[in-house]
């Protein structure tokens, strides 16, 4: 437990400090959202309608930025071998990495999202749905992403391959997440948030085991 905590704290620190991924992901998130009105026009009604979907897509993309290197840096400098020798199990390593990623990407993105939603003219009624859906959904992004990161850790140009592997698997998150915001806009109850929660719980529970299997195969010779 102490080892897990130590790894978690280390990873959070690495991401939070200068040159770390946390701030970059946030900046990317903001930049993508800012680009959207330039692409589709500044019509306030249209922006309000698409705000939930745009924020969700941008959030998923921003998550991918830091994900593909989740294990790679440690693999290249040998820390991952040392971690494998430590009392931590591979499952534990995956849990620590994925939690650290969520704390430094998913959570800050969720906190920033209302500000960007304001820019996109999202109606006040949908803010809770947006924040809650991001809070529930982003752990699933971190979980599925960490599995793919563990699978691709030995590939030098894995960053190019990574989105192709992850994005199809993440469609349910985007559909349910954006669907929850849209449902609130239309004032209907469609259960999207519960489906999102179910998907997220399953992803977070299963990911450590699959991620551990992927780490094991990459570290065995």
């Amino acid at each position: 437990m102490r080892a897990l905590g130590a790894l978690l704290v280390r990873d959070v620190r690495l991401a939070a400090r200068a040159g770390g991924s946390a701030v970059l992901a946030l900046a990317f998130f903001a930049a993508v959202v800012t680009l959207v009105p330039f692409g589709i026009g500044s019509d306030a009604k249209l922006l309000a309608r698409v705000a939930g979907g745009v924020l969700w897509v941008a959030a998923v993309l921003a998550n991918l930025l830091a994900l593909d290197r989740l294990f790679q840096a440690d693999y290249e400098d040998g820390s991952l071998d040392l971690l494998a020798l430590s009392p931590l199990s591979f499952e534990g390593i995956t849990v620590a990495k994925m939690t650290a990623h969520w704390l430094t990407t998913g959570l800050p993105l969720t906190i920033l999202s209302p500000v960007l939603a304001l820019l996109l003219n999202l109606p006040a009624t949908a803010y809770t749905a947006l924040i809650v859906s991001l809070l529930i959904g982003t752990p699933a992004v971190s979980a599925i992403g960490s599995v793919a990161a563990a699978l691709t850790l030995s590939i030098r140009r894995g960053g190019l391959l990574f989105p192709l592997l992850v994005l199809p698997l993440l469609t349910p998150v985007v559909i349910f997440g954006a669907g929850a915001v849209l449902a609130r806009l239309d004032g209907v109850e469609n259960g999207a948030i519960w489906l999102l929660a179910a998907f997220s719980v399953a992803a977070v529970l299963l990911a450590p085991f699959v991620g551990a299997a992927a780490l094991r195969l990459n570290l065995s010779e």
Binding site: L169, P172, I175, G179
Partner: peptide, 9 residues
């Protein structure tokens, strides 16, 4: 799950 979510969507 993807199939279901797309149908739902």
């Amino acid at each position: 799950i993807i199939e279901f979510s797309v149908q739902w969507w």
